[in-house]
Amino acid sequence: MRKNRLLACFGVALAGAAAALVPMTASQAAAACAAAWNASQVYVADNVASQSGHNYRAKWWTQNDSPATHSGQWDVWADQGACGGGGGEDPPPAGGFPLSQTQFEQNFPNRLPIYTYAGLVDAAGHFPAFAAGDDTTRKREVAAFLANIDHESGQLQYAEEHQPWGEYCDLGRPYGCPAGPTAYHGRGPIQLSWNYNYKAAGDYLGVDLLHFPDLVKTDTSITFQTAFWYWMSQNGPNTMTAHQAITGGSGFGGTIRSINGSRECDGGNPAQVQSRVNSYLRFTQLLGVDPGGNLYC
């Protein structure tokens, strides 16, 4: 998300591109819908995926066979019955965040302990304008946010930038870099960096991140709050925030431009852009919402 970022320090492109919805096993399936079937996902016997309001159990290895059209006694999928949010699915939290804990855990299976569902929900509650529109707008924004943090943090497997750390320290600011010139490297799900971002985010959140930047990688709510702060309030290299982009018609491509457009958009790094788009399409499928237009920047 930051200016002058060393993208090579992150493994996010490969991790984001390789990420896939993790299907539930048959023992976990209930009245709730499993993760939506994904044509690029390999399924093995007893994996469960949902499609068209039904859960389906794979009888053996399959990849491109659509459950709704390849189920039956002699085919690869067995229809497990209708699903739709009842039974064992976690109720979505209040405030319009339409992602359950089960879905979060399934789709970030290798996340670090700092990245908890409770921390995500608590942080979202500090930004009531996030995901506050109609159902389509809410789900698109949640999918866009998750896709970008998925890419930035390698499916939530990174809490901070790999060493050696760069000097993200603008000494022209009156407050300087009291924690040291390399203390403001990327941290958190959206890789907050630079002393002025730590200062501004800390002032907004009421936390002294300028002197204690490690809070971004150790506090389960603060780490997500910094991501929401950037998403809701910072234009980055764009003329609008990521929140304004996804809710105002600029589409998912606009969120990319707000986060790292100076390096990725306009042909700067099409592979990175495609990685983000792939993640967005997975999450919109999971949440059951049309992704809309303007996917690329």
Rank of each mutant, 00 (worst) to 15 (best):
D134N: 15
D134P: 07
T136S: 11
T136N: 01
T136L: 09
T136G: 05
T136I: 09
T137K: 00
T137I: 06
R138Q: 11
K139N: 06
K139M: 08
K139F: 03
R140E: 06
R140K: 09
R140D: 09
R140I: 04
E141W: 01
E141M: 02
V142P: 04
A143M: 05
A143Y: 00
A143V: 05
A143D: 07
A143H: 07
A143N: 02
A144G: 14
A144T: 09
F145G: 00
L146N: 02
N148H: 06
I149G: 05
H151T: 09
H151Q: 07
E152F: 03
G154N: 03
Q155G: 12
L156G: 01
L156D: 02
L156A: 05
L156M: 11
Q157L: 01
Q157W: 08
Q157A: 02
Q157H: 05
Y158I: 08
A159G: 10
A159I: 04
E160K: 11
H162F: 07
H162I: 06
H162S: 15
P164S: 12
P164I: 01
P164G: 06
W165T: 04
W165Y: 15
G166A: 11
Y168S: 15
C169T: 05
C169F: 04
D170P: 07
L171Y: 04
L171W: 00
G172N: 15
G172K: 12
R173K: 15
R173F: 08
P174V: 07
Y175E: 15
G176Y: 10
C177F: 10
C177I: 01
P178V: 09
P178C: 12
P178Y: 12
A179C: 12
A179G: 13
A179N: 14
A179H: 12
P181F: 08
P181E: 15
T182I: 11
T182V: 13
A183Y: 12
Y184S: 02
Y184W: 03
R187C: 02
R187F: 08
G188D: 03
P189R: 08
I190W: 03
Q191A: 02
Q191D: 06
Q191E: 11
S193E: 09
S193G: 07
S193L: 01
N195Q: 04
N195D: 12
N195E: 10
Y196Q: 10
Y196K: 00
N197A: 08
Y198W: 08
K199L: 09
A200R: 11
A200W: 04
A200K: 14
A201D: 03
G202Q: 12
G202V: 09
G202D: 09
G202S: 07
D203A: 09
Y204T: 10
L205A: 06
L205Y: 01
G206L: 07
G206C: 02
D208F: 10
D208W: 08
L209D: 01
L209H: 01
L209Q: 08
L210E: 07
H211G: 00
H211E: 13
P213R: 03
P213F: 00
P213Q: 00
D214G: 03
T218M: 04
T218V: 03
T218Y: 04
D219N: 15
T220V: 05
S221T: 12
S221Q: 15
